[in-house]
C-alpha cells in the first residue's frame, strides 16, 4: 500500500520514557534472620527476573532498595528495572523503621527533582515497605514525623505507600504508620509477593496516559485484600 509522501516525511520527537519509580523499603532487623531473610532474597531475585522480562517495564520502572535495621542504608539507588541487581541481604540489629521511611521519601523527592530537571514524565512513586516488626530503638518523634510525612504524601498524592506485614509484625502500629491498610503476608510467600509486585508495576508502566490501572488481586500471597 502506498503511503502519502507528506505523511512519510513526518518525524517523531524522541522523548525519554516516562518513569515508574518504586522504593523497596525492607526490614533487615534481627528478627528477619534465617528463613524470612532467605525468602526475601529469593523474592528479590524473582522480582528482577519477572520485571526485566518485560521490555517496557524494564525501561520504565525504576527500583531502589532501602534497608532498615539499627542503621538505614540505600542498598541500591534508583536504576531502571532492566539493570536492577538484586542484593543479598542479611538480618541483624534493631528496627529503625521511622528513619527508613524518611530515607525512602527523601530518595523519592530527589528522584522527582531529577525527573523534572530532565523533562521526564513520571507516575506516582511507590514505597513498598516489608517488615516483620514495629519501630524499635529510635526516638518516638522520628517515628511520629515519619507517619505524618506518609500521611501528608498520600493526601497530596505525592507517593503511594504500601506496608506488607510479615508474620510477627505489629499490624496495629503499621496501620498508624501507613494511610493504606497493611497487607498481611501469608507465611513466607515472598516469591508470590514479588511476582505480584512485578505484575502491578508492569501493568502501570504500560498505561500510557490518562488511564487508571486495576491492580491484580493479592490473594496469591496475602490473607488480607488490598
Amino acid at each position: 500500500m502506498s503511503t502519502d509522501l507528506d505523511l512519510e516525511n513526518v518525524e517523531f520527537a524522541s522523548n525519554p520514557d516516562p518513569r515508574c519509580p518504586c522504593v523497596l523499603l525492607l526490614d533487615t532487623s534481627g528478627s528477619m534472620a534465617g528463613e524470612p531473610i532467605a525468602a526475601l532474597n529469593e523474592g528479590l531475585k524473582r522480582f528482577r527476573d519477572e520485571i526485566s522480562g518485560d521490555e517496557l517495564a524494564a525501561r520504565r520502572a525504576e527500583v531502589a532498595v532501602v534497608t532498615f535495621d539499627s542503621d538505614v542504608k540505600v542498598v541500591r539507588d534508583f536504576v531502571t528495572a532492566g539493570s536492577f541487581d538484586p542484593p543479598s541481604l542479611s538480618a541483624t540489629g534493631q528496627t529503625h523503621m521511622g528513619a527508613g521511611i524518611h530515607k525512602a521519601l527523601d530518595l523519592i523527592e530527589a528522584r522527582k527533582a531529577e525527573y523534572k530537571r530532565n523533562g521526564v514524565d513520571y507516575y506516582r512513586p511507590w514505597v513498598f515497605m516489608i517488615t516483620d516488626g514495629a519501630p524499635q530503638g529510635e526516638p518516638a518523634d522520628v517515628v511520629e514525623r515519619a507517619a505524618q510525612r506518609v500521611s501528608a504524601s498520600e493526601a497530596g498524592k505525592h507517593v503511594a505507600f504500601f506496608a506488607v506485614a510479615v508474620q510477627g509484625a505489629d499490624v496495629e502500629k503499621l496501620r498508624r504508620l501507613s494511610a493504606r491498610p497493611p497487607l498481611e503476608l501469608s507465611g513466607l510467600k515472598f516469591v508470590e509477593l514479588f511476582v505480584w509486585l512485578s505484575s502491578s508495576i508492569q501493568a502501570r508502566a504500560k498505561v500510557d496516559v490518562g488511564d487508571q490501572v486495576t491492580l491484580p488481586p493479592t490473594d496469591g500471597w496475602s490473607s488480607v485484600q488490598a
Binding site: F12, A13, N15, P16, G119, V120, D208, V209, G210
Partner: peptide, 12 residues
C-alpha cells in the same frame, strides 16, 4: 494524548 510523546519535545 496518544500522540503527545511523538509530537512534543517534552523537555523543552
Amino acid at each position: 494524548d496518544g500522540l503527545q510523546r511523538l509530537a512534543l519535545d517534552m523537555a523543552a
